[in-house]
Design a binder for these strands. Structure first.
Lengths: 342, 342
DNA sequence: CTACGTTGATGAACCGGTAAAGCCCATGCC
DNA sequence: GGCATGGGCTTTACCGGTTCATCAACGTAG
């Protein structure tokens, strides 16, 4: 017999290497107190028995679980479509992996449900900390989770994250850039199709949009606040295009809605970009697949996620973590924007 | 003082309720041996102290962690685009949640890396079992993971999953339906843009495609095996459309490539569906956003994920689990398919 | 009145690691 | 030679639950 299959523990390894379990623990955690030779024997024994330290036991004595939580609160149908999240998650994971840390992911139906979940995660010590996304204005998660003492970093402007250290993109500046660009092309009637009104970054973008339009002396740009789904984007676009003084340019809050907008324009026989310019947000590969290709406000979503994870680690390490912005999204002009036809 | 903040354990609850920790444990696990009155006192104490059982401690003695693993092995950029996975994951989670079980998700770069990861997960008992997806022919994960004794369910045809109980869609039948439909419309030159050749289900679909074409007496349909990305789909489409006897219909292996194909057709001035019919796979919202809308082989991806999770639970419960198919994808005709122009 | 079965609860032994204190021996130094 | 030093390893006490053998108290049947 070699491996007593199934249940090999540190004790077996210790026995096989002829040392105490303390020594095995030291060796496996790269701590001083074991000679090179012994260390070798221990590793050899472990390898042969196929042993790795039991994570539950380790968490129990270490008082940390090397896991962080992320709850996403949008209908799955939407999430699947938004290239943003997978990319973001992959960025998070790239950093977690360096620390041998895992991501606990959960899709929830409402913010209240998320609060429940985060409370359980934290009370049961299933996570060392969490990442909070999609802040609403006066977000209902803030109070209970702060009181709980959950270590968490917020993704969103510091004004929104209510004291949780945050990582954010400067959407206001990006919106201004987008509008100025369209205005420079000669557009006067610029519209915006945004996400849900309650969502913090929607509000920020909406305000920046208004302000920039005003600053440029353009009449109150119309904006429609809707969901993030393609269907809603399509409906909003249809509405805008049916109005008497239809806009000559539309800025969308994500890329899926922009794709939908493109579809609607085609369906209505409105030429893009000649009769209508479209500008997407959260540039993903999708923007390069359509015809015409979609101009977009592009940013490094993977890097964004990675930065969030880094901040969380700093926080967990007990550091005093200041909120910090990541690079501002920048305009990538493609085929869907052009000067309006005179 | 009420809550000694941070570290309230079962002992504190027991003390507060005036019982032993054993009693608290019994109460919280709904086991007999505590009277109704005591049970009440215990719950009251726990609620007041904000206590929930520490998951590490519980896993340690229970010998199970209520967590299952899922590793996805495609570049993040792709994953984000494929609506399939998020939907699939959400299906998995809907069932896991019922069992208070969590999903450990990880993106990996190669199958070898996945093997490493699964080994670690299992050896360290971070998971009770795993879900394996994207089987290749002669998949290199099978041997090591079977030897390891990892409880896992495979997503894919039983021929591919090498002894792991599997849940699968009958792609061969679906492909046949797709081809027959196009043939019935009058198409003679039908092409297929498939996923990577190594991928098991690509091979199955490819073979079914060939066979059906043959059975219908159509000349060897051309098919291109490529990646799953939009860019690759676009390139493949361009290639097909530039050939001397260009196809009048193309079947894609996912929806993102079909969208890309639509873009290419537009760019090349090929009218869809008049000059070219397109048929997507893995129907998602995306297919309804384009113009024309995309006909697709549609299936219930959420339900698929849920079924996979159910099978895994059965397996973990020690049942003997037979492989089972879920519903075959079925054709949803939309605007991108029509009889070829004479 | 004793024997017996139940119910409600306790205490101690685990689960499989980590961490800190302790022990032994070789060395260095005065 | 005596004594501090420290490397190498063992011992032991946790971590916070679950589980099981045990026991007291309280009917209830014989």
């Amino acid at each position: 017999m070699s491996a007593p299959p199934g249940r090999v523990t540190i004790k077996d390894v210790a026995a096989a290497a002829g040392v105490s379990k303390g020594a095995v623990s030291l060796a496996f955690n790269n701590k001083p107190g074991v000679s090179g030779a012994t260390r070798e024997r221990i590793f050899a024994a472990a390898r042969q028995l196929g042993w790795a330290p039991n994570s539950a036991a380790r968490s129990l004595s270490r008082q940390s679980v090397d896991t962080v939580g992320l709850a996403l609160c949008r209908p799955a149908r939407l999430l699947g479509l938004e290239p943003f999240y997978m990319e973001f998650i992959s960025g998070i994971e790239s950093v977690l992996a360096e620390h041998d840390c895992s991501l606990l992911l959960r899709l929830v139906g409402s913010l209240e449900e998320e609060v429940q979940l985060q409370e359980r995660w934290w009370r049961e010590r299933q996570v060392d900390g969490s990442i909070l996304v999609d802040f609403h204005q006066d977000d209902p998660r803030i109070a209970p989770l702060r009181e709980l003492g959950l270590p968490a970093v917020g993704v969103g402007h510091p004004d929104l994250t209510g004291g949780f250290p945050s990582v954010w993109t400067d959407d206001a500046t990006a919106v201004a850039e987008a509008v100025r660009y369209l205005a420079a092309l000669g557009h006067r009637r610029i519209a915006r199709v945004g996400g849900p009104a309650g969502l913090g970054h929607s509000a920020i973008r909406a305000q920046a949009f208004e302000r920039t339009m005003e600053a440029l002396g353009l009449d109150g740009g119309r904006h429609v606040e809707t969901g993030f789904s393609g269907e809603e984007g399509a409906r909003a676009t249809r509405m805008l295009l049916l109005a008497s003084d239809r806009p000559t340019a539309i800025v969308y809050d994500n890329d899926i809605m922009a794709v939908a907008g493109l579809g609607v324009a085609a369906e209505m026989g409105v030429a893009v970009p000649d009769d209508l310019s479209l500008l997407a947000w959260d540039d993903s590969q999708l923007c390069r697949l359509t015809h015409p290709t979609l101009s977009a406000m592009s940013h490094d979503v993977h890097g964004f996620g990675a930065e969030v994870a880094r901040v969380l680690f700093d926080l967990l390490a007990g550091q005093d973590v200041p909120s910090r912005p990541v690079a501002t999204p920048s305009l990538v002009p493609r085929g869907s924007t052009a000067p309006p036809r005179p």
